[in-house]
Amino acid sequence: MSLLQMEQVSHRYGSQRFLSRQTERTVLQDVTLTLEAGTCLGLLGRSGAGKSTLGRILLGLERPTAGRVLFEGQDIYRTTANDYRQDIQVVFQDSFAAVNPKMTAGQIIAEPLTNFTRLAPDALQHRLVTLIEQVGLTRADLAKYPNQFSGGQLQRICIARAIATNPKLIILDEAVSSLDMVNKALILALLGELKDKYDLSYLFITHDLQAAQALSDRFVILDQGQIVGEYPTRKAFVDATDPHVLAIKNAMLATHPRYRTIRK
């Protein structure tokens, strides 16, 4: 049994959004994909392709208009049990928007722990210290507020929150896209390390080819709400020549001025 299966999932947003002219907009169309335990699936696509909506559906935040989402064989929108919540966590792109500005790092990381577990206060404190050190910060950082951290540090706190309850799957929604190159490399390394250590699975939603390749074993390309390409191995992806892969590869910038294409 796969860890996660999406079967024929379609999603439409109703009217009364910003443009009243549009009555309905199809965001996802018959999306079917599976994710095996212990792997990382890279979900690539341009902004507006429906990647984030797909993530929200998997997180149980948005009931799809059609189709099923099975986590460990159980349809998360048909079950009354909320067990899956503990097992599926998320790291968002903008870490500053992903934490409550009025809470300390300690309170932020403690939120899932107090909701899902019954730890005594000192056990909780102990767990918080373990978690924050795990992501490369210190015990003293627990008392700080979000505006005292840099974007990279705050993303580490979000990762600590995501791994707090030992989840099975973490959805990385553009988790490294707004970090600078130094932090991007460090966070990718941390995510790789945590994946091995805790046998985590990732769904890595991103438009960043380099970041996706650093972590993923399999790749899927989403375009205009539909899956337009599936690549079972890294090699298959690198060798692929279909227009969707080429579009991504062409959008990559040169790594050395010798190869540059915009200025000649």
């Binding site: 190159m181 910038l253 790594t255 001025p257």
Partner: peptide, 29 residues
């Protein structure tokens, strides 16, 4: 980036391009 370059090439605009991304620098500077 393409249109930034177009502005530069057409109007001779001087550009200070601030980025943390070395690829952007490699393409443009």
């Amino acid at each position: 980036l393409y249109y930034l370059e177009k502005v530069r090439a057409t109007y001779g605009t001087a550009i200070l391009l601030i980025s943390h991304d070395l690829s952007v620098i490699a393409e443009m500077a």
